[in-house]
Amino acid sequence: MEISMKINGAEVTHDVEPRTLLVHFVRENAGLRGTHWGCDTSNCGACVLWVDGTPTKSCTMLAASAAGHDITTVEGLEKDGKLDPIQQGFIECHGLQCGFCTPGMLMTGRWILDNNPKPSEEEIREGISGQLCRCTGYKNIVDSIHWAADHPAENEVSA
């Protein structure tokens, strides 16, 4: 079936099997390989991207269900050649090692801050609790999201 969706603002159309998972559509059809997958069982969150601005595990959604919706992936975070503060925060605070969980963590981190510009440590920990990281023990991820909270981009509305 032919499926169209907006990915990072651009319309993407492909003819795929109805069973195609959104993560595969994004990776294989749209060629955006920043979104990963790690578990098959909706536990790990390596595949998190946004559907209409809401973080979603894209291994547990059919591409067909995403048709007509707005998808944002890690590739969509950088604007006008400038990293989003959440990306910068992960660099500053050593919030990643192997980098495999990072795209999903970034998408959720950005979403946490969009909804709660000054989150507590507990709120951040709760917010990323559906995403597994095997390298960092989460401490530096929490710090990275805090860093981004403390360094909002100029165009961010301060709340």
Partner: peptide
């Protein structure tokens, strides 16, 4: 129940 991302969906 599950985790925040699963609860979104």
């Amino acid at each position: 129940i599950a985790d925040p991302i699963v609860r979104n969906k």
